[in-house]
Design a protein around this nucleic acid. Structure first.
Lengths: 222, 222
DNA sequence: ACAATAGTGTCTGTGAGACAGTATCGA
DNA sequence: TCGATACTGTCTCACAGACACTATTGT
């Protein structure tokens, strides 16, 4: 940076917006809140927090996730920073979007501190509808959905949507939901075989062949 | 966002840091400046500008690029936002990193408005050395270098580093520099073929077979 | 035995990688 | 003719896609 005499520049508010994704009933869901105040009173919005003056962006995201879900150690990553001038009709706010992934079994969003009215929203349904969404959050959600789909193809990000031990039919379903298309069992298994390792457990009680639990293999370097 | 009573939060300075990449003498280069003031006086840094209160992030990036290079219409994209508390030893500054790509033929960085001492730095050399770099800019450069390499593999981003009309040996060289490895002519051409179209021009004057100029094909949908 | 789902074997086509060959310029 | 670089043909191998087959549970 060349000019650091920032006195000539007004400072800005910086917020972190959170996209907490999970999969419930074989649908991709997003944790959203219904706003209790204007603007956009009673419309749904992404949860978010302002970034403190002595707080890292990642720390703010972590704090927000904790406040909304009660969870401390779930996967999250920074997505993109949105800086349109009129995103918020009242004041200038720069928003850094963070995406978090959590298996539904861990997500008891009622446990959050300020769960005024958090709900899990069906993402595809929401994006297909023209339901009103606060601020520029529809755009943010679209971007996150796109990014999530992309990353599934070349990373192991989907593992964060299942528990530590999972069956392959379950994991495959997660992939299918994120990719928006069905996959062949045999091919899917061949593809992820190098990334997983067997456990000694299998499902019980189903009226069909049980399926084995696997876990993610660590340290893929040899 | 739930709580919009921002009065309890201090506002922050937001800056845009610019990574203007080009290829000169078959080396990946980055436009950097030598700081004339403390902190980090006389050390190299990324150029950057503060984001105005009524200015979009993209607009700030565009303005910065214009000021540094004199160019108005080159490719750029947002990379990542860096928000460590002590990135700048004096004050809290959030920095949104933008990457720009420009063919060396267009880059006359002496034309910039505040070209106190802009220079093109060899990126690999810089990262291999332990030369002092201002702020957290080494980290930012590392990230950008990584991202650039990645995007070359699955996008046509490399085209922004050559002029509108280019020869395939030239374009291949650009790919090789970005990927850090040599490629086979035949394979490279097969891969690139669907994205380009012939022109009527060929190189002249070289003491060997001339090479044809191509341009990027538009509208790949049919 | 049957329904239902878990899991495997294998054929095919596509595309990356490797390499050898041919083409066309100036000197 | 020769050196140098542009350009092409083709073999191989790994891997994704497609599909048929076998395996194991509860009822």
């Amino acid at each position: 940076m060349e000019e650091y005499d920032s006195s000539q520049y007004e400072k800005l508010s910086v917020a972190v917006d959170l996209l907490v994704f999970t999969i419930e009933n074989d649908r991709l869901k997003l944790l959203m809140i219904k706003r209790s105040e204007n603007p956009f009173k009673n419309t749904i919005a992404l949860p978010g927090v302002f970034v403190g003056i002595k707080e890292t962006l990642d720390a703010a995201a972590k704090r927000g996730i904790k406040e909304e879900t009660g969870l401390k150690n779930i996967y999250f990553e920074q997505l993109y920073t949105f800086g349109e001038v009129k995103r918020d009709p009242r004041m200038r706010i720069i928003s850094v979007a963070y995406m978090a992934l959590v298996p539904i079994e861990k997500l008891d969003y009622k446990a959050g501190e300020r769960t005024i009215s958090a709900e899990l929203v069906d993402v595809e349904e929401l994006l297909a509808s023209n339901k009103k969404i606060a601020f520029d959050h529809r755009e943010i959600i679209k971007y996150a959905r796109w990014r999530l789909k992309n990353k599934v193809e070349y990373t192991d990000i989907a593992f964060h949507l299942v528990e530590e031990e999972f069956t392959l039919p379950r994991l495959q379903k997660v992939y299918e939901i994120l990719l928006g298309k069905e996959l062949y069992k045999a091919n899917f298994r061949k593809k992820i075989a190098p990334m997983i390792e067997e456990t000694d457990y299998i499902t019980v009680g189903d009226a069909h062949r049980p399926s084995r639990f696997y876990r993610k293999k660590q340290a893929d370097d040899e």
